[in-house]
Design a protein around this nucleic acid. Sequence first.
DNA 1: CCTCAAATTATACGCTTGCAGAATTACCGC
DNA 2: GCGGTAATTCTGCAAGCGTATAATTTGAGG
Lengths: 215, 215
Amino acid sequence: MADGVRRKFRREGEAQRQGDLIAAALELIAEGGPQAATVRAIAARAGVTPGLIRHYFHTKEDLLCAAYASFMQRMTDDHRATVADGVADPVARLARFVVASLTPPMVDARAVGLWAGFIHLVQHDPVMRAVHHKTYHAFRFELDVLIAEALASVGRGDSPEELRRHAISCNALIDGLWMEGSSLPDAFSDGELPRLGVANIGLLLGLDLAAALED
Amino acid sequence: MADGVRRKFRREGEAQRQGDLIAAALELIAEGGPQAATVRAIAARAGVTPGLIRHYFHTKEDLLCAAYASFMQRMTDDHRATVADGVADPVARLARFVVASLTPPMVDARAVGLWAGFIHLVQHDPVMRAVHHKTYHAFRFELDVLIAEALASVGRGDSPEELRRHAISCNALIDGLWMEGSSLPDAFSDGELPRLGVANIGLLLGLDLAAALED
DNA sequence: CCTCAAATTATACGCTTGCAGAATTACCGC
DNA sequence: GCGGTAATTCTGCAAGCGTATAATTTGAGG
């Protein structure tokens, strides 16, 4: 580098720069965990100098909070986008929900790394905990409702305890397949993961989800 | 602290001190992730001074490798201890395997924190990768065999592709329940988790695992 | 009781980290 | 074109990091 030469730069809007910094932080955490997301590394990846971070975020932890919120928001947005609302049959809605949970971009090599990297930050920061609870329980609640509606639509009136058990098990199966698929992407052929999910959640609930998908 | 007074200490055997240091490192990672496991923090928790770490481990990464190996070894040991070998009926063996996977000490609040904390270290360090592959695939392979034997024992000759799908799904269900139970310990009543696992894996495979347990 | 190897502590070094504030530069409105 | 504002960079700092090595203390054996 030439000495005494100040680096050229372009001015950007607040949203743009914040977005770049958040994206950079997420990339770094996904690749190397929280320890890789140093202020200097984030700035370098975002194409700016470290000082700029403190111009847009009061502290590094603030940036990480925003990054986590952005991550969770993108996950739920992606999920909703794939679910394709407006399906009349409750069983088909549940099936689509499962497929969406086990299809890219939900299943992604970096997603599980991000999820793991944030766990400890989430457990210690109250703000992150709030974000976590909101989005996590939203997912779980949505699944609860879908299962209840799907069972009701075929005339089954499972007790609340049975519904709770169904929701826990289906959620576990989705989570487990999501983890396997995300961390071992090459272990599954195209479309195998959602097919497994639909078939097996059908088994758990006693519903033919696969058939309901063909509409 | 009095000035110029050197700290008193007791000599311990190599195994004892290494064990203390490893235990301290695991505690810290479980609580606060890899970033919390600094050399100084580990030493303090183990009741020694930082320099001692380098007397027993060539580098900090060596200590973390040993800690990960110890963690995985303890998990598989605990698992095997609960499985209670020597059961004749293959279906009962599978059921016991599932129960063991979803019972303390396998299900533990700190276990999932540790697992998450090590993920990125494992992905970057070849030695850790080796440890991971060895123990992880041992678990998965054991499950594969148990499922095949259980199905064969009731006269079902599922094709290799079906067996593979069964193993993936059962593994996913166990993993998911393990994660839910470990990260939300208060969300489940006593014995509920293994009961859910046994019942639902029975559904996935078309076997009555619960009945096989009562022997 | 003294000796001596080894276990342990203490100190120090170079590097990185997050953070703060001053200095500079780009761009918008006139 | 020409300020003026604020976006951006630059420099510096104190604390913490992992590591290296020298200085001590311990406990066992003679």
